[in-house]
């Protein structure tokens, strides 16, 4: 465990030196500020729109961050040949993957929390109530972001970075579809489409912006279930990524 944590800290430092993370985080905060600047025209429920759009912006930010953080890590390590000495002695392939993933996941989580705080500030400045479930909702977006991060790592082991981004974005989009919506993409083969849909997560599990915006209470057990669900998918994707990585020849 210790080598993984040390390598994760190294990953955090190297990622923070890149401009990508800062760029995406600034874009998220600017978007939140922009949402807060939309005039309310006296509509009493303006807070709902700010909350709804704000959480949607955070979700898109999680996708962009996952792509921006992880799509280049392995290809760059391979290009600069950093990976060869790393894997030769101190780290196994599993530890390399977990170290890189943990470092990127820490940055992703901090960015989401900063985004959530930004949304809170916008709501407070606009004199709207801050719902108590805002932090748990952001927690679910963090888990969703970690799953997307695992997906990006999985793709990065067998595709190039320019292909990684659209593949992850595509998976993100189709995972938003309901089963019937997904089958509707190719209705001639419903059995095949249903089987394929099995591999994709139900992303709507992480979406609780609608009830929060409308002031509805969400049972605590649901948050727990959704987190377990997201972490399980993340573990599955990481296992697939490791299986692909273990087959790669580094020579």
């Amino acid at each position: 465990m210790r080598p993984v944590l040390t390598f994760a800290q190294m990953t955090v430092r190297s990622l923070l030196r890149r401009r990508t993370v800062w760029g995406i985080s600034i874009v998220i905060l600017l978007a939140l500020t922009g949402i807060g600047q939309v005039p309310g025209y006296g509509v009493t429920t303006q807070g709902r729109f700010i909350l709804d759009f704000g959480l949607f912006g955070l979700e898109i930010g999680a996708l962009l961050l996952a792509i921006g953080l992880a799509s280049n890590i392995y290809p760059r390590d391979r290009e600069t040949r950093t990976i060869t000495p790393l894997l030769a002695v101190p780290l196994s392939r599993g530890q390399y993957l977990m170290g890189r993933f943990t470092g990127a996941a820490m940055i992703q989580a901090v960015s989401m929390i900063v985004g959530c705080l930004g949304l809170m500030v916008v709501l407070i400045v606009k004199q709207h109530a801050v719902p108590a479930d805002l932090f748990p909702a952001t927690g679910l977006l963090v888990v969703e972001g970690w799953f997307l991060l695992a997906v990006v790592f999985f793709f990065s082991f067998w595709t190039s970075p320019p292909l990684n981004a659209p593949l992850t974005a595509l998976l993100f989009i189709v995972s938003q579809l309901s089963v019937s919506g997904f089958v509707g993409l190719f209705p001639r083969a419903p059995g095949l489409m249903r089987t394929l849909r099995l591999l994709l997560p139900h992303m709507d599990v992480f979406h609780i912006k609608d009830p929060i915006a409308h002031g509805m209470e969400i049972p605590g057990v649901y948050f727990l279930l959704a987190i377990v669900y997201g972490l399980s998918y993340m573990a599955f994707m990481l296992a697939l990524a490791l299986a692909v990585f273990r087959r790669r020849d580094m020579k």
């Binding site: 139900h202 709507d204 599990v205 979406h207 609780i208 609608d210 009830p211 969400i218 049972p219 057990v221 649901y222 279930l225 959704a226 377990v228 669900y229 972490l231 399980s232 998918y233 573990a235 599955f236 990481l238 296992a239 697939l240 490791l242 299986a243 273990r246 087959r247």
Partner: peptide, 30 residues
Amino acid sequence: QPWAASFVWGKMLRDSVVLVVLALTVYLGS
């Protein structure tokens, strides 16, 4: 939506267990 449909919560748990088992299988197999 899943937060309102408590009858799918059990299925969410089922999927989680299946995914963890699959993850372990893929990890050990590879």
